[in-house]
Amino acid sequence: MSEKEQKPKKKSRREFLQDLGIIGVGSVLAGSAIFAGINYDKRKRPFDRSRVLKAENELLEIERADGSKVVIPKEQNFTYLQQRGRDGLEGKRFVMVIDLSKCRNARKCMNACNNAHHLSEDQHHMNVLKMQETKETPAYYMPKPCQHCDNPPCVAVCPVDATFKRQDGIVLIDNERCIGCRFCIAACPYSARIFNWAEPIHTLEEENMPYNVELNVPQKKGTVSKCLFSADRVREGKLPYCVSACPNGVYYFGDENEDAVTNGTTKETFRFKKLLEDNGGYTLMPELGTHPRVYYLPPKGKDYPFHDKDKEEAAEHLG
């Protein structure tokens, strides 16, 4: 981690300790005065919003290397990368299809993902689970990314608009905004979110890297992280890291508006709806009404064995 980053952090910690001291030792009257002030702010917020935001002007314009037009942030307290990451791609609705009959737990997706997003080995944006529904039904491997729900329970509960859904359907997290309350982790029924409990390990390349919402790198201590559908790659028209890393043709990724998904291994493109129709596609826990953008094809006619050593772990969740 760079010196530059460390200094302001230490300062803010010290400031916070002072605050704590003031609040803790100070009288209740002083405390309630602060809270009254907070409340006054809150009350006026909806009406004075634009003014408040202008006061914190942090606009940072970056000319894109390819000379294409610069997106001028609508809300001026975002950097260019933040604003671009929040808007998403116009006219797109990204979907992923995961063919469970092809997954053999090679875990290349997990490795590629962890490398791209600088995660430690215990952190998973993408997790290949050993699943079994009942004692009688067979076990299978199930890659589980964030489901990028169209009715995302995690985004609904976020108090600060740190996690958000873009116009192209991708759910991202802005770790410059996140306060680390972990409400989104509690609200996600798919356990798709992780938290940076300690200072993440920072690589040398991160040193001068501006924070990119679409990659969520550098990771920050005390903030939530999650699968991003590789929003940075998708912007360039490339398939996500996990999708292209798979050697077994498990993943399809594409644009629902174009009715097309492309297999990450063979790069063959299929009609999205037909693929689901022909193979009995489904979503995880549809009863929760989350409307995932990740679809699964059932583990029918698997062309690999489920390893015996994994059977015990798969059966653990039978209840």
């Binding site: 398939l239 097309a260 998904v261 493109t269």
Partner: peptide, 10 residues
């Protein structure tokens, strides 16, 4: 082929 965002649809 029809060009799609991530590849060509035959």
């Amino acid at each position: 082929f029809a060009t799609r965002y991530f590849g060509r649809l035959q």
